[in-house]
């Protein structure tokens, strides 16, 4: 396939063009959210700095590692299907899904900790942003996992091969977006002071 590609201009984007529209919109949403966060933080620096310390950075760090490695596993899955190895592709996708599940569990632990301390959206501006940003991202992890799961089911049915694996790339692209957003979100909310 590399021979074929080198003759014309390389294909711009992996996966279906439609998912890139969607990814673009999603990044726009998060982008707006991040900008709003930055503006609000600059107006309430002391408050943000004070309550940032109450967040569980270790769990956040663990979650970052989970998502990054999960993204890597999904890359492996794409490579596997390019080599026409459906079984291996499915295994790597399972590994990716396991990473996502781990993320959700740790996040649930983190939330239950906060909620049992009586913290909610209305507690203060910082928690408002912390909760709404991370929960919105949480929902994206769930959606991303559903997409990956759909890819797994289709792969098992033998829908993908080395010639035809746009579906796998599409799912992978979305999953990378979910990962990317977290990589920005984590330092922004948990670390940067």
């Amino acid at each position: 396939m590399s021979v074929q590609l080198s003759e014309t201009e390389p294909k711009l984007l992996p996966g279906d063009l439609a998912i890139w529209f969607f990814i673009f919109m999603e990044l726009l949403v998060f982008g707006i959210f991040f900008i709003v966060y930055a503006v609000m933080r600059s107006q309430n620096i002391e408050l943000f700095n004070e309550y940032q310390l109450t967040l569980n950075r270790e769990l956040g760090m663990a979650n970052t590692l989970l998502l990054i490695s999960s993204s890597y596993f999904v890359v492996r899955a794409v490579h596997a299907i390019r080599g026409d190895d459906v079984n291996r592709c499915v295994y790597w996708l399972y590994a990716g899904l396991a990473g996502g599940t781990g993320f959700l569990i740790l996040k649930a632990v983190e939330y239950s900790d906060k909620f049992s301390a009586g913290i909610g959206l209305g507690t203060n501006t910082f928690y408002m942003f912390y909760l709404s940003l991370t929960m919105f991202h949480f929902l994206h992890v769930v959606l991303g996992m559903l997409i990956l799961l759909a890819v797994v089911i289709k792969a098992k049915r033998g829908a993908y091969s080395a010639d035809n694996h746009t579906g796998v790339e599409t799912g992978a692209s979305y999953w990378h977006m979910v990962d990317l957003v977290w990589i920005i979100l984590f330092p922004l909310v948990y670390i940067i002071r």
Binding site: L28, V29, I32, F33, L121, M128
Partner: peptide
């Protein structure tokens, strides 16, 4: 209502034109 709605409402409804544009 609590004032976080001003943020959530503004951010998300700013995106509501997108599906119509699409």
């Amino acid at each position: 209502t609590p004032d976080y709605w001003q943020w959530l409402g503004s951010v998300f409804s700013a995106l509501e034109p997108i599906p119509f544009f699409m």
